[in-house]
Design a protein around this nucleic acid. Structure first.
Lengths: 212, 212
DNA sequence: GACAAAATGGACCAATCTGTCTTGATCTTT
DNA sequence: AAAGATCAAGACAGATTGGTCCATTTTGTC
C-alpha cells in the first residue's frame, strides 16, 4: 500500500526526491528504497533488511556497493540533496524578472514542495535532528547542502546591490528553514506564504534604505 | 566526561531542560537520564540499557514506572516541554513594556537558549523529524507544545490590535522555527538576531497599516 | 562459446534490542 | 520490631540489528 508513493512521483514535475526516479541496476534500486525508507521512517529506525526487501536485492549486493549502513546514509543524503537542488534551482531559473522576483519565487517553489503528498520535510534537517551529536559526516553533508543554498542566495543579494550580502542570505535561510519545519509539522503548505510576506517586507526595507 | 552537562545547568537561569534538574527518586533519575540521552543522541538510537546505566537504576525499576519505551519517550517529551515553557514564558513575563516589546524579546530569550553549550535544538522538532510517519503520539505532543506557543503569540497579537491575529502567530512561528533550526545547524546563536530584525519589520508594517 | 566480473539467495554470526522475571537488599510506615 | 513497598542486580527470552561468507547464477566481453 505504501508502495504507491514511489510510483506516484516519477515523470511529474515534482521529482525533487531521489526516491522518485526510474530504477535500473541494483545500486539504484537500493538507493531508491533506502531514500524512501530513511526519509519517511527515519535513519536509525530503518533496518538493512527492510531496505533489502523493498529493493528486492540481496544483502551481499548492498555490501558490494556500500561499505556500511553509514556509507549508505551518506550516499542517500548526497543523492537526495543533488536531486532536490536540481529541481529547486531549475524551477527558480525559469523565473523571469529581477533578483527580487527570484528571491520571492523561492517560496512559491517551496509551497509546491510542501504540497506534494510525499513531502516529509528536509532530509538534512531531519538527519541532523536525528544524529546531531556524533555523526559528523551527516552534519557536514547538511552544511554542504546549506552552503549551496547560501551561495545562490548571496548571488541574488549581490544582484540586488545589498549592503550586507551575508545577512540577506542568513535572513532568507531563517525564513526557508522556518517554512519547511512549520509546513512539515502542520502539513499546511500555506506557511510558505507567511514566509514570503516576511521576505517581501525585508526586501522592501532593504531597497528603501539603499536608495534614501 | 559527558556527565558534565547534567551538573552544569541546575540552579542557573538556564534550566530550560528537564535533564538539568536536581534528582530525587529513581523515577526522576530515569527521566533526567532519558531526557539527556534522547535529546542528545536521538530517540531510536538510545537503548534502554544506556538509560539505565546513566540513571544508575535497575531495569525492573524502569518498567515499574513506565510501561514501555514509547511511554518513556512520551513522558520525557511532556516534561521537557513543560520545563521549557515555564522557563521561556517566565523569561518573557519579566519583560516590561508593550506587547511589541514582548514579541521582540522572544528572540532575545531564544538567543540565550541557543547560546547554551548544551543546546540541542527543539526536542519536538527533533522528535517529529525522527518519527514523522507512524508515531502519532509524538506528533500530537509536538502539536500540543506548538499550540501553547501559538496561544501566547495570539494573545500578544490581540494586545497589538492586529487585524489577523492568527496570521501574526503563524508568521512568528515561522521565524521561531527557522531561528531554532538555523542555530542548531550552524551552532550560531546570532540567527536569533536575524529573526528579530524580520519580526521588527513585520510588526512595523502591521501597525503602519493599522493606522493609515 | 569461454571466461571473468558482478549479482544473487540465504545461511550464519555476534551483538544488541525491548521486555520479563527472580532474588535479596534497603527503606518507610504502622 | 513487623510488614510492605521500593529498590538494585542481573539472568533470561525472543526478536532484530548490522555485517560476513559462500555457493550459485547471471551478465558482459573477447
Amino acid at each position: 500500500m505504501e508502495d504507491g508513493l514511489q510510483n506516484l512521483c516519477p515523470n511529474t514535475s515534482h521529482n525533487w526526491s531521489f526516491a522518485a526516479r526510474p530504477s535500473k541496476n541494483a545500486r539504484e534500486r537500493l538507493m531508491r528504497a533506502a531514500s524512501y525508507l530513511f526519509c519517511n521512517h527515519g535513519f536509525a529506525a530503518t533496518g538493512i533488511d527492510t531496505i533489502l526487501a523493498r529493493a528486492e536485492t540481496a544483502k551481499a549486493t548492498l555490501y558490494n556497493h556500500f561499505a556500511s549502513k553509514e556509507e549508505l546514509i551518506a550516499a542517500v543524503l548526497q543523492a537526495e540533496g543533488e536531486t532536490w537542488r536540481e529541481w529547486f534551482f531549475g524551477r527558480l531559473a525559469q523565473v523571469e524578472g529581477s533578483a527580487r522576483d527570484r528571491l520571492l519565487a523561492v517560496f512559491d517553489v517551496l509551497q509546491d514542495w510542501f504540497a506534494d503528498p510525499g513531502f516529509y520535510g528536509c532530509p538534512f534537517i531531519n538527519a541532523v535532528a536525528e544524529f546531531d551529536t556524533g555523526n559528523d559526516a551527516v552534519r557536514r553533508a547538511a552544511a554542504l547542502h546549506k552552503e549551496h543554498l547560501i551561495t545562490w542566495l548571496k548571488a541574488q543579494a549581490i544582484e540586488l546591490q545589498a549592503k550586507d550580502v551575508a545577512e540577506v542570505a542568513r535572513s532568507f535561510a531563517v525564513l526557508i528553514d522556518g517554512a519547511i519545519v512549520a509546513a512539515q509539522h502542520s502539513r499546511d503548505p500555506e506557511f510558505a506564504r507567511n514566509a514570503q510576506v516576511l521576505a517581501a517586507l525585508y526586501l522592501d526595507n532593504l531597497t528603501a534604505q539603499a536608495r534614501p
